[in-house]
Amino acid sequence: MGRTTKAAILSVCGIVLLILGLVGSIAVGWTDMGAVDAVTALIDSSASQQHLIVSTLRLPRALLAAIIGAGLAVAGAIMQAMTGNPLASPQTFGVNAGASLAVVAAIVLLPELPVPYYALMAFAGAVLGGLAVFAMGSAGGMTPVKLALAGTAVHLFLSSLTEAFILFHQHSTDQVLFWLAGSLDGADWSDIRRVLPWAAAGLLLSFLMARSISIMKMGEDVARNLGQHVARVRAMCGLLVIVLAGSGVAVAGPIGFVGLMVPHLVRYAVGSQTRLYLPLTALAGALLLVLADILSRFIAYPYESPVGIVTALLGAPFFLYLVSKERRAA
C-alpha cells in the first residue's frame, strides 16, 4: 500500500474520530447528559437549559480545543522542520513564554484592562517572544543550532521575568497560575471568533507551503540547490509558528507538548514526505487536544483542571523517549 493511500485512509479515520471526540466533548460535563441527549439538545431550538449549556459552553469549548490543537501541532511540525531539531516545539520558540509574560504583566501593571484585551496582550507577547528568538537566531546567518539556542535562552529569560512578577505581586497573580498551565474550561464563542481567523489563515498557508517546508528539513544546502529561497521560507515559517501558536496561547494559555508529540506520531504513521503530512498533523493535533480536554474534566471532577496538566502527563514521558532515542541514534 502506498504512503499516499495510507495517509488518505488515516485522514478519513481521523475525521471520523474527531467527530466522535467532539460529540464526546459536548456530552461530558457536570450536567448529566448522554451523547444522544447532547446532540439533540444542540439541535433543539428552544432555549432550554440543556440547549444553552451545549450550544454556548460545551460546543465552543470542543471546537476551540480542536482549533488550538491543530494550530499547535502544525506549529510544532514547522518548528521541527525549520530547526532540524526533533525536540523543537512552539515552547522552544519563545512564543509561550512571551505570551505568558505579557498576560502576567498586564494583570499586574494594567489592572483596569478589560478582559478581552488579555488575549490581545498574549498575542503581542507571543509575537515579541517569537521575533526576539528569530532576530537573535538569525543575526549573522540563521542556523538551526543558533535558533534552538536563542529559543531556549529567550524562553528562560522571559519565564524568569514572569516568575518575578508572580513573586512580587502574589496577591494579584496567585490565580493566574491556572491560566499559565493552559486551560480551555472558560471557552466561549468570542474566543473562537478571536482565534479562528488567525488559525485558519495560518493552517491554510502552511498547507500551501508544505513542499517548501519539507524541503527545509533536508538542510540548507540541499534546499538551496533545489532552488529554494531559504531566507524567505524561514521568515515565512517563523511567522506561521508565531501566528499558529500565538493565537492559541492567547485564548487558552501555554498548552505544552502538543506541538512536540503530534508531528512525531504522524511521522511514524505515514512519514513526512506525503502531501497529507501537515493536514494529518493538524487533524491529529485537534484530536489529541479534544481528548485531553475531556480527560482534564475528570482529574478533579466535578471541578476543572487545566488541560495543560493532561498534555504534560502524556508529553513528558514522550519527550524522554525522544531524547533517549536521539542518544541511541547518535
Binding site: 504583566a105 499586574v108 501593571l109 515579541l128 521575533l131 526576539a132 528569530f134 532576530a135 537573535m136 538569525s138 543575526a139 529569560f157 522571559l158 521575568l161 518575578a164 512578577f165 512580587f168 505581586h169
Partner: peptide, 22 residues
Amino acid sequence: ARLFSLCFLILFTLSGLLAGCG
C-alpha cells in the same frame, strides 16, 4: 536583527526593574 535583539533586551530589563520597583 541585532538592533532588534538589543532593543528587546533593554525593554525587558526595564520591565524587570519596573516589577522590582513596584
